[in-house]
Design a protein around this nucleic acid. Sequence first.
DNA 1: ACAGGTTCGCTTTTT
DNA 2: GCGAACCTGT
Length: 801
Amino acid sequence: MSSYNEDDAFEAAAAPRGGGLAARAMGAAMEARTAPYLDGLNPAQREAVETLDGPVLMLAGAGTGKTKALMSRVAHLVLSGRARTDEILAVTFTNKAAKEMRVRLEKEPFGIPTPMRWMGTFHSICVKLLRRHAELVGLKSNFTILDTDDQIRLLKQLIVAEGIDDKRWPARMLAGLIDQWKNRAWTPDALPASEAGAYNHMGGVLYAQYQERLKTLNACDFGDLLLHMVTIFQTHEDVLAQYQRWFRYILVDEYQDTNVAQYMWLRLLAAGHKNICCVGDDDQSIYGWRGAEVGNILRFEKDFEGAKIVRLEQNYRSTEHILAAASGVIAGNKGRLGKTLFTEAKGGEKVRLIGHWDGEEEARWIGDEIEAMRGGTRGMDPIGLNSMAILVRASHQMRSFEDRFLTIGLPYRVIGGPRFYERLEIRDAMAYFRLIVSPSDDLAFERIVNTPKRGLGDKAVQKIQMMARTNGVSLVDGARLLLETKGLGGKGAVELGKLLDGLDRWGAAARVGEMSHIEVAEMALEESGYTEMWQNDKTPEAPGRLDNLKELVKALEEFENLQGFLEHIALVMDNDSEDATEKVSIMTLHAAKGLEFPAVFLPGWEDGLFPSQRSMDESGLKGLEEERRLAYVGITRAEKLCTISFAGNRRVYGQWQNALPSRFIDELPEDHVEVLTPPGLYGHQGGMMGQASPVMQAAESDLHEAAAKANVYNSPGWRRLQERQGARGLSQPSESKNMVIDAQAVSAFTVGDRVFHQKFGYGSIEAAEGDKLDVAFDKAGTKKVVGKFLVAAEAAGDTPF
DNA sequence: ACAGGTTCGCTTTTT
DNA sequence: GCGAACCTGT
């Protein structure tokens, strides 16, 4: 989605409808002849495609041909003459998804020739709309979009100005809060009192100040793009009506990921005709932590009266064992809309489960396994590395795999690492570009004023800021005044003069148009000394950074001017460099959503890591359920072979910690799981396996190891296992003495409970003696605390402060 | 102004 | 255990 002119769509909107009618007539004729896009759809898909009018919720399980149905629906709308392509609003979450759809729609069997103007992310569509109506929220149409970095820098200034200690109250935290507020569509005056008191009682005040500041900067952040449009729609009926009429049909992908603001935006736009089709899967909602509301999809029927619900349940991706394993896990969640995936593909490998001594061993085993599969193993055909993926819960888990794969020379690629446009050198370069396009971009100026080093330190910058503020001008002009009034001397003054001259010249060159924007960009990077700075840098990263700068300049070629480029970057940030060589993919479970691989490895299934302790502490049952959905997403990525593993010991923050198998492992249905017990993994095997399930056997052999290592008897996982063992009539481990659960104890807490303390944060109870408790805090170490100063971690997580 | 030492604080991530 | 971010001495 690069550089089509955003105004085109509006010109088209103003144009008479004659062309549309002709297109419609043509579409109808095409449908009469044949509708190839309807062939090969199963009954559910077909229903989802043919129910064009009124609200439709397409509940599409993993691998059920959702995209195909969505595409067919668009084709059906267009080719049957119901709507022109530019009368369909199609919203996705990522640019990648939008791009993919655009490409697929142009090809057979759909063959939609005209581009879908209004297909894009919530944010990119909102930018287009907001540029048109910016003045209604006090912005000019050429407003800039701030990224997280700018946002934090701005907030920090406000925080310091308020005399708040930004150590104790980091700007990041406030940025996070404001983000969440915007996700919930709370403007500063609509902010509930309970929220406004956050951030040392200053949250509300600072939020309001921040919004004011953005307005004077003629800027907005990502959240504003949506929030401003919602505000405009709510306060300007005529504007809303215009778009309600224009967008005759609305399609939404990944509806389970929508936040409140996005939901309101959609409801407002759909309120007239109600022709809205939302596609999603409540079981794959994994972005609650960034404001997604599963409630939106669960409530759909209530929100849109007479809504038709279509379930896509036939899975075309995975074997029955994989589906059964995934279903077994997700069944543990409450409040699902409910779907039962089925497949016609019978047989195949069971889901494999294996325990390891530690994380390194796990990485070693997976590396070996990948090598074996590459050559063909266990009667399976050889699988290419591109067909294999390792999906982890947290990115720090990737390290052990990278280390291992580097030593054995196994090619891998990490998906979703630091992205191109987030890199230091790219952002610096872009700050220069921003200043060329708009010299009043103060944040960009602050970023590069002393990069490369110009002898302009804190003191000089403060002088510039003072001058700018007292004269009510931008920093660039403030700097100019400062030089004119000789307010700055020495080397700094000379260098600042050079920078200002440079900015004038580059800006003029860009405007005159004698040079291409690419030449202007090169000139700026060269003359500012920025390129030179990296050439003189002898750190190992420097060459890579120079390469990146070259790549950045090359990327300019696709755009008409710098402005268009910056716009694109602010929103698109996509960075999939195609790479022909075969490589194993390593990524987080979150990054894996929507992807599929013949063979998938799911390492690190240990309680605390996965499900993540923090998730459970902060969000309790809600958090656990989201973790479970993450497990579901992970398993359903696999087509043929899914291998789950856990380690008894793992290095966390440099410290060795022991761990218990994830509770999700207990939820895997035995009949669909094969437990691998690699020979020689443990010094001893067996012991008390008895007639326990295969799943339990593996868990147990590992548990004994872990148990021998350290005091793990307090963990919920251990207690759970004991319960299970009791139920199965297995022997109790002798070391259960620490399991003090004294019903008579004065304290409401028992050993192993997760608790929260106002000062020390989260921790777990190590020992309980009446009301006196020993608590091992995650951060503050072990302390003796009286029970009344503690709350259950779960309860604390629900009331942020 | 800046290099070198020290402390802090650590999911998930898109736009 | 590691990197960023902050502090201190020159």
